[in-house]
Amino acid sequence: MTHLVEARELVKDFPGVRAVDGLSFEVRRGQCFGLLGPNGAGKTTTLEMLEGISRPTAGEVLYQGRPLDRAFREEIGIQFQSTALQDFQTVCESLRMFASLYRRTTDLDELIALCNLSEILDRDTRKLSGGQRQRLLLAIALVNDPLLLFLDEPTTGLDPQSRRNFWGLIEAVRRRGKTVVLTTHYMEEAQRLCDEVVIVDRGRIIARGRPQELVQAHFPAVVVRLPADAWPSGAPPPPASDLRDGYIELFTEEVPPVLEHLKRVGANLNELKVETPNLEDLFLKLTGHGLRS
């Protein structure tokens, strides 16, 4: 069996809202699977159903081909988006407490080294920085040596440096053969970590596939971005372009003819950028609204 987790026609209703509206997908063993979408798209709700924390209104979740049971809890690790730990505990005590809740545990010393916790072992968990806290929460999620790891927006609120460190950590975890399911609204994160993503908006899947292939399938090779005020007034509007965040965007297979054209109309090229389209562009194209709206 190659599918570790299978979601079939998941639906979740809250009073007055359908938060998740018929999602189906499969997560392969050893894969890093990403659920992408803006806030309120239904990512966390979907993840909670996969984790067995909340029951779907309709549809089902299968783990190794079977419905979720109590044994499932022994085999998964979860890092929630926001979690408080019990007060007045040190990092070490928190780890040990969670370790005693499981039948099987990983080697704690190794885990502490992996998550880089050795220097803060005796610190009160309330006095940790954002990055330290996320590392501890990841260590707790890994304490039972899970087959399957759920990460709900693991780097939201971290500074860029801590975020990059955390990505390195998740890559190290993946090298140990863990299957990872994560949600994020950072496209960069998804592109770096995920083998496969589904893009969710308003409770429905609007695209799925490998991040690179998804982008290539929807866009020409590159995008040329030019500040809107660099376009000479009076010149005819640029062909096949979009206006976004004060930038004119020209998607194209080849850059030189575009540059030729820009020079001809007398555009100011000082702030011109040539980029590869990313998931963010894709999301905008598919939904017509921004990711963080």
């Binding site: 924390i53 809890r73 022994e74 979860i78 929630f80 979690t83 408080a84 730990l85 969670f98």
Partner: peptide, 14 residues
Amino acid sequence: YRKNGVLRRLQATP
């Protein structure tokens, strides 16, 4: 515990 998420975290364990 329920309000700050401690219970939710514990619920995810055995």
